[in-house]
């Protein structure tokens, strides 16, 4: 992918502990899958940066390539791609997401 765009993504996910690429924003999600992940993060009181991919086509298509993941939403924690809606839901139900985010706060 375009190295400048890749650098932008690198910067974004490395400078923020939790980043959610989504359709719409945290207050007004525009898709059920994005809404579900935002709802989980809100429920856990997680501080996160929400990026609305609908506002920018370069980001919308670029993030799919950057993550090697064809759908939105996408969650990053500490620069690492964690998953989309199914994975985040499963991790939340298993208590794994809480554990991951607790470790973040402790670090």
């Amino acid at each position: 992918m375009n190295p400048e765009l890749k650098a932008e993504f690198d910067k974004l996910v490395q400078n923020n502990d939790v980043v959610l690429f989504m359709k719409g924003n945290a207050d007004f999600p525009m898709c059920g899958f994005s809404a579900r992940v935002a709802q989980i993060l809100n429920h856990m009181g997680t501080k996160y940066v929400d990026i609305n991919v609908l506002e920018n086509d370069a980001i919308r298509e670029g993030v799919k390539e950057y993550s090697n993941w064809p759908t939105i939403p996408q969650l990053y924690v500490k620069g690492e791609f964690i998953g989309g809606c199914d994975i985040i839901s499963e991790m939340f139900e298993a208590g794994e997401l809480q554990e991951m985010l607790d470790n973040l706060n402790a670090a």
Partner: peptide, 18 residues
């Protein structure tokens, strides 16, 4: 892991996803 599993399915269906 979960991400790698879903990527395998997505790779198989990349034409359909695109």
């Amino acid at each position: 892991n979960r991400v790698a599993r879903q990527r395998k399915v997505y790779e198989l269906l990349s034409t359909e996803m695109e």
